[in-house]
C-alpha cells in the first residue's frame, strides 16, 4: 500500500541525505555516532531473518542496504573522517536506551525465543535510538539544515508506517500490537522535532516570499 511504500522511500531518502551530507562536506560534524551505532544494532538484530526467511527480493535488498549503509556510516565516522572532527557533545547515556529496550523485549514479545526477543528488542531500540542525535542537535544549537532534513525523513518513515498499519488492519485483518506500540512511541519522540521543523520551514518559506 501507498503508506508503506512512501515510508520505505522516506527511510531510503533519509540515508541517502546522510551519506550525501557526509561525502560532500567531508565531515561528520553534527551527526551523533551513538545514534548511528545504535542503528547498526537495530538493523542487525531486526534483519537476522534474512538468513532464515525469504519475503521478497525487494525486502531482502532493502534489508541488506540498511545494514550495509549503517555499517558504512559508522566506518566513515570512526575511520575516514574521525580526525577532522571530534564530537565532545555526543554524550547521551546510551546504556539506558539499550537496557530499557532489552527489558521491554523481555516483557513484550510473541514467543520466548532468541530471534523473537531480538526482533522485539530492535523495535524498541529503533523507537528511542534517535535520542542521542536529538540531544546533540539541542546541545550544538544551530544545526545544519541538511541534518534536520535527514532527521525529518527518518522520522517520517515510521510515522507513515502508522496509517499503513491501520490499512493492514482493515484490509488484511492483521494487527501487530508490538510494532504499533513501538512505532507510536517512536513517532511521539519525533513529534517535538517535527513541530520545530515545520515551524522553521514555514518561517523560511514566509521570508522568501516576494
Amino acid at each position: 500500500n501507498l503508506f508503506r511504500i512512501a515510508g520505505d522511500i522516506s527511510h531510503l531518502v533519509s540515508i541517502l541525505i546522510l551519506l550525501q551530507t557526509i561525502e560532500k562536506g567531508k565531515t561528520t560534524s553534527g551527526i551523533s555516532l551513538k545514534t548511528q551505532i545504535l542503528y547498526v544494532v537495530v538493523f542487525v538484530t531486526r534483519y537476522l531473518d534474512l538468513l532464515t526467511t525469504y519475503v521478497s527480493l525487494y525486502n531482502s535488498l532493502m534489508k541488506i542496504f540498511f545494514i550495509a549503509s549503517s555499517v558504512y556510516v559508522v566506518w566513515l565516522m570512526t575511520s575516514k573522517y574521525n580526525k577532522k572532527f571530534k564530537e565532545d557533545q555526543d554524550v547521551f547515556p546510551v546504556k539506558y536506551l539499550v537496557g530499557g529496550s532489552f527489558v521491554m523485549s523481555l516483557l513484550f514479545h510473541y514467543k520466548f525465543t532468541f530471534s523473537e526477543i531480538l526482533w522485539s528488542f530492535s523495535l524498541w531500540l529503533e523507537a528511542v535510538c534517535i535520542l542521542p542525535q536529538l540531544f546533540l542537535l539541542q546541545k550544538t544549537g544551530e544545526a545544519k539544515a541538511i541534518t534536520t532534513h535527514y532527521i525529518f525523513a527518518l522520522g517520517l518513515y515510521r510515522a507513515l508506517y502508522i496509517p499503513n498499519w491501520f490499512y493492514r488492519y482493515y484490509s488484511e485483518n492483521r494487527l501487530d500490537l508490538l510494532s504499533v506500540s513501538a512505532g507510536l512511541l517512536q513517532t511521539t519522540i519525533y513529534s517535538d522535532f517535527f513541530y520545530v521543523y515545520y515551524q522553521k520551514v514555514l518561517k523560511n518559506w514566509g521570508f522568501n516570499l516576494p
Binding site: 520505505d8 527511510h11 531473518d49 525486502n59 526482533w119 498499519w165 493492514r168 492483521r174 494487527l175 501487530d176
Partner: peptide, 10 residues
C-alpha cells in the same frame, strides 16, 4: 485472518 505480525515490513 492470517498471522499477527508485520515481519514482512522493514
Amino acid at each position: 485472518g492470517g498471522g499477527k505480525t508485520v515481519k514482512d515490513e522493514l
